[in-house]
Nucleic acid binder design. Structure first.
Length: 242
DNA sequence: CGGGTTTGACCCGCGC
DNA sequence: GCGCGGGTCAAACCCG
């Protein structure tokens, strides 16, 4: 881990003017939407907390700049200590039902062991859930332990994308972390899969002390840890976290 | 020494 | 078929 846990919250609270995702996306940042952002998002409604569904209903007005076979939803997962702006979309939703078993199997297989014959359709993916966080550090503390297993340069972006896997042996949750190329202060984190274990919650004295025991969602989404930063969301999805 | 990171190579899907 | 880009592997390296 290489973030300075010196003062997350200070960044979030003091250093960044908070913007809503719509502010971001509607202006110069269309690419965030039309480019990778939508592509890398995917979420099944099974993971959708109520607010997700609500937001999805409100937020399906996604410009089909790319193949978007899923609804965009805005999510506001509470990042521990940043202002966060989040969106999520689902690819899995529209995929025809896949037996969990198959999916598991596919997953178990490593790259080299991929079954030669693929099904008629696209490779099944784990439900994915992405959100945007205004932060200066790439790797947000979310209560789980992650091991970086790769990094790639992203086309159209000067920032690399990092790939992390949950270190828990039985848990194959992955996440990708990249910065928005159009707004470097925004970190886009995409979670894939669901944790099969509880958060190992690492004590981090430097941060919010007693609030650390606050929960993670079942999906490994960072949850708000400090009431002081409790996020607010309006029905119009303009979110400001403090 | 164990666990995490780096990084080049490799594989795969997809568009042309 | 080919090239490109995304995603993953794994050896080497680093660090506590």
């Amino acid at each position: 881990m290489y973030w300075e846990n010196s003062s997350y919250s200070e960044y979030a609270v003091n250093n960044f003017p908070l913007k809503s995702i719509f502010d971001l996306c509607s202006s110069e940042d269309m690419k965030v939407r039309s480019l990778g952002f939508m592509d890398l998002l995917g979420v099944q409604d099974l993971i959708g907390p109520p607010f997700l569904e609500i937001m999805a209903a409100q937020q399906v007005s996604t410009p089909p700049s790319k193949k978007i076979d899923s609804a965009e939803v805005i999510n506001q997962p509470a990042t521990p200590n940043f202002s966060s702006i989040s969106t999520a979309s689902s690819e899995a939703v529209n995929d025809e039902p896949v037996k969990e078993d198959d999916r598991e199997e596919n997953q178990q297989k490593t790259k080299k062991q991929l079954k030669p014959k693929k099904t008629n359709q696209k490779r099944q993916r784990e439900p994915r859930f992405a959100f945007m966080t205004k932060s200066e550090v790439d790797h947000l503390e979310d209560g789980y332990r992650w091991r970086k297993y790769g990094q790639k340069a992203v086309k159209n972006s000067s920032f690399p994308r990092s790939y992390y896997r949950c270190t828990a042996s039985s848990c194959n949750v992955k996440k990708r972390v990249e910065r928005s190329f159009s707004d470097p202060s925004i970190v886009v984190t995409t979670y894939e899969g669901q944790h099969t274990h509880l958060s190992p919650i690492m004590p981090r004295p430097s941060l919010c002390g007693s609030h650390l025991s606050s929960p993670m969602s079942a999906f490994g989404m960072p949850m708000q840890r400090t009431p002081a930063h409790y996020q607010q969301s309006s029905s119009s999805s303009t979110t400001i976290y403090r």
